[in-house]
């Protein structure tokens, strides 16, 4: 992020790195400085973070016991598929 004129574009481009805390310190400082004065980018960041929360929450509802056995009917159907 070298050109201050491009910071809105760059803030959005590097948002994932910023949130993952993988941006270098100098870039992070410029990023923070831009967020301080740009309500649009702050708003974009909030909505981006919410989007991640929404997607992760969708997955967290679809967790099941990995140790649970498969239904017997499914096991038999799978094994039957080997038959010529």
């Amino acid at each position: 992020m070298n050109d201050s004129k491009d910071t809105c574009r760059e803030v959005i481009e590097f948002l994932a790195s910023y949130l993952d805390e993988t941006l270098e310190e100098q870039a992070r400082s410029k990023f923070d400085a831009h967020l301080d004065v740009c309500p649009y980018c702050r708003d974009y960041m909030t909505s981006y973070e919410d989007t991640i929360r929404l997607a992760r929450s969708t997955g967290s509802d679809a967790i099941c016991d990995e140790l649970a056995p498969l239904p017997e009917q499914l096991v038999q159907a799978i094994l039957k598929s080997r038959e010529p």
Partner: peptide
């Protein structure tokens, strides 16, 4: 989308945290 100067086109600061 962005203008040549790097500003975002049609920004809408309207998202409330969920």
């Amino acid at each position: 989308g962005f203008y040549e100067d790097g500003h975002r086109k049609n920004p809408k600061p309207t998202w409330s945290p969920l």
